[in-house]
Design a protein around this nucleic acid. Structure first.
Lengths: 325, 325
DNA sequence: CAGTATATGTCAATCGTTTGACACATGTCA
DNA sequence: TGACATGTGTCAAACGATTGACATATACTG
């Protein structure tokens, strides 16, 4: 790879001059500028960003830690993060924690060693303390660490409320809620709180089933649904905490001969693209994933630039009614 | 951030000693080693990988360029690439081209400026020439550049053959094939060749519909299916080049009152996870995505280490029969 | 006691780029 | 003529780590 030195020699100028051309500073004649650019093209010169980063103490890299990209919610989030990061001149480093604390910790250290400009945390398997000592700007998705670290989430409580209310309004008398593992202290636990309170207030029977801590395990979903329908055959409403789980609920119902939505009404969560590929299309609570991604990048930038930012960012959710309710 | 210098000073030793501890070379007493590690922990020291990369001329970063992560095939591929890269000590930089040549080119240059150790190309919107001049090790997914650059693909021709044969065997007499844009010169075009040849050989009516160059556009899929069913109402078999398109085909059929698989048999491609969330579950041609990801990382490594490697890597596909055929 | 293994230090170069200080032209304008 | 703008050069330090050469000191072994 050619260096700035090679370019300077070949162009018959000094490295300072080349650097000046490259960074547009100081006086440069049109003739020299052209000459330098020509040589750069000829040598296929690409300035070494590693050397620049070292000097500038800025890598322009954002680390994105999520449980796994192949989960639709996170793959869509990653897609938007990449989109807005690119627009802002950042590169994104993809880190799947697989919800393994050791891997998550390892990735955090790796990102620090690589002096990333910021970390977007979509996985949270460690203790609050461990996140607090991070020096780089971070932003968390769906979890609050403390009142210094900005977090982004959608209005989980409201989402749980809307979902439960819809099922009640549609006439469900016994509603099951399948939620994620509550031990992770995610803000999504609020959906479950909302479910309990709303169901109680409305006076309908309700049960809650927690999934294991695995990111996503189809077999587990199938088992949970089967058990649910067997132990509570009179269930007439299911509020699943993701569209994928809702999809398995639909399949489970059909397997045992129940019609959706006539016998069982089902609502998912997230409103990922896949929710509308399914048949029947799944009613869902839409999280503004694009906006969450945009805001995550923006919050990193604001921290880097020392600008003020809001610590708690709760975005509105929206009911998207389709065919399963 | 603490530097190796701070650690040395605080530990009362020289930077050389700290470096020796860090890199496990030369003689170090247990006492000093412990002392240094203690201070490193105390100062929360993380060696600056940027400085190391500069010196070693090795960044341990792999660039992954794909059309978009939110497409299930690529999100699963990205997931595996991350998995194997992590195991091998690499970080992965996520680049979505959106099938925009300008963005793809820009990303390639960015990756070169950042001196990545290798590039996995899953997006191919540029001319062969542009890829050929890349200096870093690259590996392509689903496209052949020349006989120097290793490529990975699954057996697209065989996949197309199996899919078509299955539909014929099931009794289809008029089969439609929905394929991706053929201008991209991807190896997946072989599926279409296989479709034509097999259908002709078997003597069944067949039509082919090409999608636009967009990565994925639900509206477009819906339109294509609607038009197909309207213009060719006697279609009784559909071979879609992705499971997502197949999902839309299923929905389209049901919309116009056709039963799947009784009236129309549908087969998808890739066998992404989503294929089994759907209802009915989609019959598909399975690409070994995990193996492709593993091999991509391995081929980068082999090039880096100067080991011999195979240029053309075609992996077997497999029929996964479910409910839509 | 000589020789060697162990333990640590100093010093300087290197990776590729940026940047500030300073020097020295040439040209232009008032 | 002097002041200033323009254009380019040299030099050196800095970013943070690694590494080889070499020096020195202690401890042990045969």
């Amino acid at each position: 790879m050619a260096t700035i030195h090679d370019v300077a020699t070949k162009a018959g100028v000094s490295v300072t001059t080349v650097s000046r051309v490259l960074n547009n500073r100081g006086y440069i004649s049109e003739k020299t500028r052209k000459k330098v650019f020509d040589i750069m093209a000829e040598l296929n010169y690409q300035p070494n960003e590693i050397a620049r980063s070292l000097l500038r103490k800025q890598s322009n890299v954002i680390g994105l830690i999520i449980p796994m990209v192949s989960h639709p919610f996170f793959s869509e989030l990653a897609n938007y993060v990449e989109y807005y990061a690119y627009q802002a001149g950042f590169k994104v480093m993809l880190c799947n924690s697989q919800l393994d604390p050791a891997k998550e910790r390892d990735y955090i250290e790796m990102l620090k060693r690589n002096r990333v400009d910021g970390i977007i945390m979509g996985s949270h398997t460690l203790d609050v303390e461990e996140y607090r000592h991070l020096h780089s700007p971070i932003v968390t998705i769906d979890r609050q660490i403390d009142d210094e670290i900005p977090s982004i989430s959608s209005d989980n409580y409201r989402g749980g409320e809307i979902a439960t209310e819809l099922l009640v309004r549609k006439g469900c008398r016994k509603i099951a809620h399948i939620c994620g593992n509550q031990e992770l202290h995610m803000l999504s636990n609020l959906r479950t709180n909302a479910f309990h309170e709303t169901a109680r207030k409305q006076g309908v029977q309700h049960i809650t089933i927690q999934t294991d801590m695995n990111v996503f395990d189809q077999k587990q979903y199938e088992r949970i649904i089967d058990t649910l329908l067997e132990e509570h055959p009179d269930t007439d409403g299911i509020f699943a905490t993701s569209d994928i789980i809702a999809a398995f609920a639909v399949k489970g119902c059909i397997r045992v001969g129940k019609r959706v939505p006539q016998d069982v009404r089902i609502i998912g969560y997230d409103d990922v693209n896949a929710a509308s590929w399914l048949n029947p299309e799944i009613t869902s609570i839409r999280q503004p994933i694009g906006e969450m991604g945009r805001m995550a990048v923006e919050l990193i930038r604001k921290q880097l630039e020392g600008k003020p930012f809001k610590v708690e960012n709760v975005l509105p959710v929206q009911l998207v009614e389709r065919s399963t309710t």
